[in-house]
Design a protein around this nucleic acid. Structure first.
Lengths: 295, 295
DNA sequence: CATACAGTGTGGTTTTTTGCACAGGAGTTT
DNA sequence: AAACTCCTGTGCAAAAAACCACACTGTATG
């Protein structure tokens, strides 16, 4: 039972009772309808209709086919409705991925977006590996660093991540604060365990401080923050978070170079959908508001 | 959502994950698959798949479509199985029609046929109007008289209906028996109420007996038999029935002309089906056996 | 009873669809 | 690192399907 189109025409013939009527309903020539029926019957080896001057009367088999095709048509039309609706609505799943470092910034935004769209299920994905938009692993990615250049991806700038260098009260009590940039080499640091880290502040740190001064190294940003709080060393923290933490003091004014650019990345195939559009604008708006609050 | 073939193509792409795989599965060129997907997506205004170098990954909408299409395929393949099975099996309905006059001959044959095919439902149709094979009103018709000549009908001779002229004991006691053919005009008859009856024995009666000698007229054969038994007049009865009835006496040897030819008529579209073939041969066999028993 | 009508069926033409060949990109293996 | 494999995508040719026109037939109608 291949050639589903023929089933559809047979269904219309059974409904209308005539080839001409079916042809009208389907918007094709009646000769086409006749040939579809003939082909279907000869393939099945069974007569689906009895032909007479007043039209076509379905046999038992024809009636059976009509019942099944009716169900199919119903399901397909419902499907079409759902799909078109989904194109226009904001519903279903929204999969967002980002580097873990900005999760505390992204999560509240996602939560508020979900509140605004009750039909939506938000899935926030962070992992060591990058999720690939072109395989449908995520709808929207927030990437840091140089502008991504994969083909088929739509890239827009989101914001610069404001990074500061912080030390805890405990650390300051023990070692004091660096007097200036050149004094940094005499201090102790919390940093990434990854020597190849592409994060600009880590690269800056490697240039300005001997690697053996980075005495606490971890792969997890979360642990890095804890280590700084515990006084294990001076380290980089998002400024909005560091300033909100009373146990932390900013060591020096932030250097422009530290701040990585964040990008919104979406796949072309999904970029135009209402869901993605809605989220992207929600995200931009949230950023705009928080920048406003800052100044 | 027209073009069901495209849905089927999209379904295979979702299943296989690649255009090439789907093309193989469908037995078409991969370019065709690509064009089907493109057409379907542009018609729906929604991306069903995300394209990448490793193949096509279904979006939410694509997955939804795949689910629906899966169900459709299942149903259609079941349908095909049923239909092909029905072509080979003897099952479903068997609609047989005949003139009411021979119902007592046909009904036992039908009953035995149904016994032999437990999946079959037998429907025996008799009515004043003729049921038309070309409208699918019956699968097999048993017609009397001249060979039917409608196009698209397959006609085969079945048998000659053996008709005799009978009178009841009550009638004979009152009026005696006709001495010869010319004496018939002095007797009383039971006949059809229909002056135009095409039944050959009725036409014979009209030629050999004044119409006012037909003193009991009825439209129903059943009633005719009753009237003869009650002594209302001499009348025509199927010989196998008349002879089996002890209250009836055959008035004269049957005239060749009385016996109408019976025909098996089927519609070409259904003639080749196993069901019709099985019944037709069953019917012929039953007739052959009863003829054998007669001689 | 003749006529109009609605519907089927078929040969020839046109349009659409499919198939083919090749280019190009991405992952994999040696 | 280079060759290999698998997959997508597109212009062009071939094949198939659809369309058109006309013939034909049974049915209803005045």
């Amino acid at each position: 039972m291949e050639h589903w189109d023929e089933v559809r025409t047979a269904y219309q013939v059974a409904r209308q009772g005539t080839v001409s009527g079916a042809a009208d309903a389907l918007g094709v020539h009646h000769a086409t309808v006749i040939r579809h029926i003939d082909a279907l019957e000869s393939r099945l080896g069974v007569k689906l209709f009895q032909r007479h001057a007043r039209g076509y009367t379905p046999t038992e088999s024809g009636q059976d086919l009509a019942r099944v095709a009716q169900a199919t048509e119903d399901q397909l039309s419902q499907l079409a409705g759902r799909i078109k609706g989904r194109g226009a609505d904001v519903s279903g799943d929204l999969m967002v991925t980002s580097i873990i470092e900005i999760s505390d910034f992204i999560v509240p935004i996602l939560a508020r977006f979900q509140e605004a769209h009750s039909d939506l299920t938000v899935r926030y994905l962070t992992d060591a590996r990058v999720f690939r938009l072109e395989y449908g692993e995520a709808h929207v990615a927030i990437r840091a660093g140089a502008a991504p250049e994969e083909p088929d991806n739509v890239v827009q700038p989101l914001m610069k991540l404001d990074i500061g260098l912080f030390a805890s009260q405990a650390y300051i009590k023990r070692h004091g604060l660096p007097k200036d940039e050149s004094d940094l080499a005499n201090h102790w640091f919390v940093g990434s365990d990854n020597v190849d880290s592409r994060a600009p502040f880590q690269m800056w740190l490697r240039r300005h401080v001997p690697y053996d001064r980075v005495v606490f190294r971890t792969t997890e940003t979360q642990s890095m923050l804890h280590a700084i709080r515990e006084g294990a060393g001076i380290g980089f923290v998002a400024r909005h978070r560091g300033k909100a933490d009373p146990s932390l003091t900013e060591v020096m004014p932030p250097v422009e170079e530290w701040s990585p650019q964040l990008w919104i990345v979406t796949h072309v195939d999904l970029h135009r959908t209402a869901k993605v559009q809605a989220f992207v604008s929600h995200l931009k708006e949230a950023v705009r508001v928080s920048e406003l609050a800052k100044s």
